[in-house]
Design a protein around this nucleic acid. Structure first.
Length: 357
DNA sequence: ATCCTGTAAG
DNA sequence: CTTACAGGAT
């Protein structure tokens, strides 16, 4: 370590006290934040940017002001409010966690990393983040930002994720015995988010620039290195926009486990690997006169890309369809519809302005 | 290995 | 426009 750790800690904490960003879930300087707010924001911020989370966080605390309120909510309503944020397992775990905290912890979050780790949806990162930010416990939260800062500060050449253990140890060294664990956690991440950015890091603004190994070697922008990832497969299928005489269209709750579990969707075929085979797939609804709109929706998941051909149809004889719900453009927000489906719906309404009116 | 979406870069 | 990337838990 080039300088005593103590000095680096002071530099980072001083920098943070001057550049601390205002966020809806962040308490004012020197004020203890509400653990419920810290937890809710941290769950939302998993795999999601600050800007995206903002409005969702506001919506949630307005609707469910405490963890006990959230525990009493129906999962369906939580999913509806979550719709668009992605990774819906987070919402299911969020609800489970709220129920556990309300019922088994009298509505109070555990204050230790070990206690927090027991709860659904709280992994090593989130447990450390909540313990330090909400309760000022000396825990080190290593997120993607911290990984980047540490990789560069020590010029770690080993690629992620192989370097994770090394990064964790070095992050712990930098954080060891610092006087303000909550601020330190936030400062560490904030440095990565605003200064030590993935591309074009602003080294001139960095409180640690003088001691940064990557900067001295001129490789800051090349770090952290990452192991090459296999290229994603593409899957194909069809989605169906079935409208009725009232201008409503058909959705239904998705069955099965995993992907979009418990969310609503337009009727869709299976999603398969072969484009040609997908073109021959039969419709999942028995409606005559279906026709291809000649448009596609594209959507990208973590492990595959998806291309769905859009088909439209009209239900002229009030067909009864099991588990189906007819909805109009006005009450789309009352259902947990993922972005993929909203994209498809929007395309259909734009493609058929007469029918959306 | 499985789970989504928004944004920046090319 | 198309592609690449960021971002943790189970």
């Amino acid at each position: 370590m080039p300088k005593p750790v103590k000095h680096l800690q002071t530099q980072l904490l001083d920098w943070f006290s001057r550049h601390r960003r205002v966020m809806p879930w962040r308490a004012a300087k020197g004020v203890r934040p509400d653990p419920y707010h810290v937890w809710l924001s941290e769950i939302m911020l998993q795999q999601t940017t600050v800007v995206t989370v903002g409005p969702y966080f506001m919506k949630f605390i307005a609707k469910w002001p405490t963890v006990k309120h959230l525990a009493k909510a129906k999962l369906d309503d939580v999913l509806t409010a979550w719709a668009g944020l992605g990774y819906y397992a987070r919402a299911r775990n969020l609800h489970k966690c709220a129920v556990t905290v309300a019922n088994e912890h009298a509505g109070k979050f555990p204050e230790t990393v070990e206690g927090l780790r027991e709860l659904p949806g709280i992994g090593p990162y989130t447990a450390a983040a909540i313990a330090s930010i909400a309760f000022d416990r000396p825990a080190v939260a290593v997120d993607g930002n911290v990984e980047r800062v540490v990789s560069r500060f020590f010029a770690i050449e080993e690629p992620l994720p192989l370097s994770k253990d090394d990064i964790r140890r070095k992050a712990a060294r930098l954080a060891k015995d610092n006087p303000h664990p909550g601020d330190f956690t936030q400062a560490f991440m904030e440095l990565g988010a605003t200064v030590c950015t993935p591309r074009k890091p602003k080294c001139s603004l960095c409180p640690w620039a003088a001691d940064c190994a990557a900067r001295k070697k001129g490789v800051a922008e090349d770090l952290p290195r990452k192991v090459e990832k296999a290229q994603k497969p593409v899957r194909y299928g069809k989605v169906y926009y079935i409208s009725n005489r009232r201008g409503e269209f058909l959705i239904h709750k998705r069955t099965g486990q995993g992907l979009y579990e418990g969310l609503y969707q337009l009727p869709t075929t299976e999603w398969i690997d072969s484009r040609t085979a997908a073109r021959k797939l039969a419709a999942p609804v028995r409606i005559t006169g279906l026709e291809s709109l000649g448009a596609e929706v594209r959507h990208s998941f973590t492990h595959f890309d998806l291309i769905l051909e859009i088909w439209i149809g009209r239900d002229t004889k009030n067909t009864r369809l099991a588990h189906a719900v007819w909805i109009s453009a006005d009450n789309i927000d009352e259902y947990a519809l993922p972005t993929l489906m909203k994209k498809a719906i929007r395309l259909c309404m734009n493609g058929n302005p007469a029918k959306s009116a």
